[in-house]
């Protein structure tokens, strides 16, 4: 975040929720909210879109299933047809288990990688840690300062919502 911002924290998630709603109503730009655990209702208060990650999982799974099924079908009809227990070469029921496992494997991995890559999270990722207490018991709000907006005004607004420990990077 190479932008000017103010951070302030709350001690309780209900206070935080109330504050976020108020700040949003005032038209302030909330760059981020950092919490120690997922706060129920926060995504609505921040007006986030619904996640599309489940679509990634769906298509990942579809690709996995198709790959698994077609590969088995190819092996037994074209690649190296072998007679196993008098079964037909194109034995759909016995392709099902591997097809299913491939679907789950691809779905799970594509989704998790999409999640990590989208947010640039990964082993040794460099991210800004505003306050080490936010993984413990603090709820931090990061409010952006626009050129035209008044720093004092934002600070007043934050204090009005019960925020503590206001700091900024300007």
């Amino acid at each position: 975040m190479n932008k000017d911002y103010i951070t302030a924290y709350y001690n309780d998630e209900e206070e935080l929720l109330k504050a976020v709603r108020q700040l949003k109503d005032k038209g302030l730009e909330i760059l981020d909210v950092l919490t120690p655990f997922p706060v129920h209702g926060l995504d609505k208060a921040l007006r986030m879109r619904r996640s599309r990650l489940s679509m990634v999982a769906f298509w990942g799974g579809a690709v996995g299933a198709a790959l698994g099924f077609l590969f088995q079908a190819w092996v037994f009809t074209k690649g190296y047809p072998l007679n196993f227990g008098g079964k037909p070469f194109f034995a759909i029921p016995s392709f099902m288990p591997v097809t299913f496992e491939m679907a789950v494997l691809f779905a799970a991995f594509s989704m998790v990688f999409a999640f990590l890559i989208y947010f640039k999270l990964g082993p040794g990722a460099k991210t800004v840690i505003h306050d080490e207490r936010i993984t413990d018991d603090r709820f931090l709000v990061v409010v952006g300062i626009r050129k035209e907006s008044n720093y004092q005004e934002i600070e007043q607004a934050l204090i009005a919502t019960g925020a503590e420990g206001i700091t900024h990077n300007v």
């Binding site: 227990g85 008098g86 079964k87 029921p93 016995s94 099902m96």
Partner: peptide, 12 residues
């Protein structure tokens, strides 16, 4: 359904 069908189909 699949479990029952597969096992009967497979053992034949």
């Amino acid at each position: 359904w699949f479990s029952q069908y597969l096992l009967i189909w497979y053992a034949n």
